[in-house]
Every structure is written in structure tokens, then in C-alpha cells.
């Protein structure tokens, strides 16, 4: 449990007010950071010799639908040295939904960010190849947004025409 305190202390010292919230729930530590500091924060976590969060396990977003800051981008990063997973969150506005990419810090974030862009329409600025991951190129919607119905939107995907 000492390591958690160390992270909290180091992060608070380094980033001060940019750290918006630190929450512990079911032994998971999550830190909310302001969206402008996300790349610096990622670099710091990766390169600090005590922390060494060298691999990005997962990256996704949450659509809160009714909140003022509609989306939260969620990162899970892991440190082999300390055997510890930390969750980073960053709240972003609905318009425009964009945040700086962390794929320059963690190579693996490349595809995760593409997936998040596909599903939520969040633009990752400076991403090397921001294309859709699963849905076809011309698809207009972002399926994991809460305003997209579960049954889909009729006519949004071109289907083969009925042969007369």
C-alpha cells in the first residue's frame, strides 16, 4: 500500500492543480488529470525511475450522456517494476471531443485510440493514423455513444440490393 501513497505524493508534487481527483475503489487507484496535461503526465509516468509505467494495457472512453463534460477518456497503464496498474482519467467536453494522443508515449495506444475514435468519435490530436477500427469507412455514427440505439440505425449500413 506504500506504493500508492508514493504515486499520489509524486503526482501531486509534479502536477499540482492539474490533478483533479484521486479515487480509490476496490483497491484500484484512479487519478483524474486535466486534459491539457495528459501527454506530460503520460511521459512522466513512463519515464520516472520510481514509477516506470512502461506499458499501456487499455484505453477507452465513457459517455456520460448528461454531464457537462460529456466524455471521460480512461487509460490503464501497468508498471512491471512495481507490479501495479493505475487508471488515468481525463474529462473532455462534448464539443469539440478531442484530446492529445498518447501514442507517442505508448506505442500500443495507437490501435486503442483508433478504436475509441471509432466508437465515440473522440479525435486524438496528432495521431499518426486515425481511421476507424471496426466500422466501415463511410459510416456516419459512433456506435458506443449513448444516443446511438442498440438496434442500430436502419439504412446506415449499405446492404446488397434485392435482385428483381
Amino acid at each position: 500500500m506504500e506504493f500508492k501513497e508514493l504515486i499520489k505524493k509524486k503526482v501531486r508534487n509534479q502536477f499540482g492543480d492539474a490533478v483533479e481527483e484521486v479515487v480509490e475503489f476496490r483497491n484500484d487507484l484512479s487519478i483524474t488529470i486535466s486534459k491539457n496535461n495528459i501527454v506530460d503526465f503520460a511521459k512522466y509516468l513512463k519515464e520516472d525511475s520510481d514509477l516506470q509505467f512502461v506499458t499501456c494495457k487499455d484505453l477507452t472512453a465513457i459517455d456520460w450522456a448528461t454531464r457537462k463534460k460529456r466524455f471521460t477518456v480512461v487509460y490503464h497503464v501497468y508498471s512491471f517494476k512495481n507490479n501495479f496498474t493505475i487508471r488515468i482519467k481525463s474529462n473532455i467536453d462534448e464539443e469539440p471531443p478531442q484530446i492529445e494522443t498518447v501514442s507517442s508515449v505508448w506505442e500500443s495506444a495507437d490501435w486503442y485510440e483508433r478504436e475509441t475514435y471509432d466508437m465515440y468519435g473522440i479525435k486524438f490530436i496528432n495521431h499518426p493514423d486515425l481511421r476507424r477500427m471496426y466500422m466501415p469507412e463511410g459510416f456516419q455514427y459512433h456506435p458506443l455513444r449513448k444516443d446511438f440505439p442498440v438496434i442500430g440505425i436502419p439504412g446506415s449500413l449499405p446492404l446488397p440490393k434485392k435482385v428483381e
Binding site: 475503489f25 484500484d28 484512479s30 494495457k57 487499455d58 465513457i62 490503464h76 496498474t85 487508471r87
Partner: peptide, 20 residues
Amino acid sequence: VGDVFFSAENPKGELGFYIV
């Protein structure tokens, strides 16, 4: 109310569920 991330070792690798 809350969110958890749990991962287990699967034959292919680490399968994780992040539930909010």
C-alpha cells in the same frame, strides 16, 4: 457506484474487463 478493472490470464493473453 464505481468502476473496476479486472484482468485474468487467458490462453491468448490478459483478458480484462473494465466495468463502470
